[in-house]
């Protein structure tokens, strides 16, 4: 769950713009790199260092969460029909997007809540753990 938040850490730019950061640092700088495959790997790596042991398990959980975020981002609407360059730094390629949604559409939140309720219900009542 925390992993799925990681790619959105680029939203820090709502408080401090990339331009301000560039001026402060004196070099080109874009926090949108956090919202890419490379950013997710490194952020999950940092996250795996905040536990005393079981680092690999922590990394796997965080990276899986971050990847789920990037996959869902990958089907977002783009007017030219190609997704964002989230595969960076592996590739700058923009794969075709089915343009399924924009985040400001309340239907997205409704779908997310319904899926969450379904998963929690199955997890709690349908899966028998001994």
């Amino acid at each position: 769950m925390i992993g799925s938040i990681l790619p959105d850490l680029n939203r820090v730019t709502l408080i401090v713009s990339n331009g301000t950061l560039e001026t402060l640092l004196g070099i080109p700088f874009d926090l949108d790199a956090l919202s890419t495959l490379g950013g997710a790997i490194i952020l999950a790596g940092i996250g795996s260092m905040v536990v005393a042991n079981q680092h690999r398990r922590m990394f796997a959980a965080l990276f899986a969460g971050a990847l789920s975020h990037l996959f869902i981002d990958g089907v977002k609407a783009y007017a030219d029909g190609a997704a964002g360059m989230w595969l960076y730094p592996v590739s700058w390629a923009r794969h075709p997007t089915p343009s399924l949604y924009v985040s400001s559409d309340p239907a997205v939140l409704t779908a997310a809540v319904l899926i969450t309720v379904t998963v929690v219900t199955i997890d709690r009542y349908a899966i028998q753990t001994t």
């Binding site: 990339n18 070099i27 080109p28 700088f29 949108d32 790199a33 956090l34 790596g45 730094p89």
Partner: peptide, 14 residues
């Protein structure tokens, strides 16, 4: 890792 992440942000923007 934080240094690498900073480098990634610089390279991405460049």
């Amino acid at each position: 890792l934080l240094t690498t992440l900073g480098g990634l942000c610089v390279h991405y923007d460049t």
